[in-house]
């Protein structure tokens, strides 16, 4: 028996909107730790890791570990039917081939339930090694989204370079080239508006903008984004989910042949 009650149901709606274009089908894993997911896109270029910790739910009952295969597009369709202020409860019985999403309006005058068919998905978990990153950039998530969008109108790939000067996003295309440099800036009114750069080693990596643009669909989840880079490792683009956990996107770099 599984019953997870999330008062801020809009968080789950935003999570689905942030990953449904990158991943088609995925297993949601439920354990005493929380509600989580790890999945790759169909070309195995990017990986998404989601964690919603059990403490973040108003009620969290998970009698035994359960893995539920879902089509994310279909799940997003159902969650779109929940109001932004609704409380969402996820329910499943042991051995059932369906999951139920229950939506309660804040005043309890409208209660809906949507039953979705589960699917069998063969997926193996990947071990993500703990890494010490050469550079970690924290910046406003809207700024990162803007940069990815702007650069993708010029080129297909972005080179992200961190030096002591700041973080530089560069692209080249048929019509020309573009460079955007963001310097560390902590003298802001709101801490979330800061750009903070921690650098151990200079790093420069090239990525496909098609994927970074998928990641920025998570912008509504968090006002800041953390980009962790090491030479010759996948970049980690992390959006924290207030009080609950995170969505992390890992993207394999482009490699010189």
């Amino acid at each position: 028996m599984l019953e997870l009650r999330l008062v801020q149901g809009s968080l789950l709606k935003k999570v689905l909107e942030s990953i449904k274009e990158l991943v088609n089908d995925a297993n949601f894993d439920c354990s005493s730790t929380g509600f989580s997911l790890q999945a790759m896109d169909s070309s195995h270029v990017a990986l998404v890791a989601l964690l919603l910790r059990s403490e973040g739910f108003e009620h969290y009952r998970c009698d035994r570990n359960l893995s539920m295969g879902m089509n994310l597009n279909n799940m997003a369709k159902m969650l779109k039917c929940a109001g932004n202020d609704d409380i969402i409860t996820i329910k499943a019985d042991d051995g059932s081939d369906t999951v139920t999403f229950m939506f309660e309006s804040p005043t309890q005058d409208k209660i809906s339930d949507f039953e979705m068919k589960l699917m069998d998905i063969d997926s193996e978990h990947l071990g993500i090694p703990e890494a010490e990153y050469d550079a970690i950039v924290r910046m406003p998530s809207a700024e990162f989204a803007r940069i990815c969008k702007d650069l993708s109108s010029i080129g297909d790939t972005v080179v992200i370079s961190v030096t002591k000067e700041g973080v530089k996003f560069s692209t080249k295309g048929d019509i020309g080239a573009a460079n955007i440099v963001c310097r560390q800036n902590t003298t802001v009114d709101k801490p979330d508006d800061a750009t903070v750069i921690e650098m151990k080693e200079p790093v420069s990596l090239q990525f496909a903008l098609r994927y970074t643009n998928f990641f920025t669909k998570a912008t509504p989840l968090s006002s800041t984004v953390t980009i962790s880079l090491s030479n010759e490792l996948p970049v980690v683009v992390e959006y924290k989910i207030a009080e609950m956990g995170y969505v992390r996107f890992y993207l394999a770099p482009k490699i010189e042949e």
Binding site: V45, L47, E124, H125, L126, L233, P234, Y250, K254, I255
Partner: peptide
């Protein structure tokens, strides 16, 4: 042009 890397060459199956 640089070649697109693959996640499976960085992270191994458990």
């Amino acid at each position: 042009d640089p070649k697109q890397g693959n996640i499976l060459s960085f992270f191994k199956k458990k």
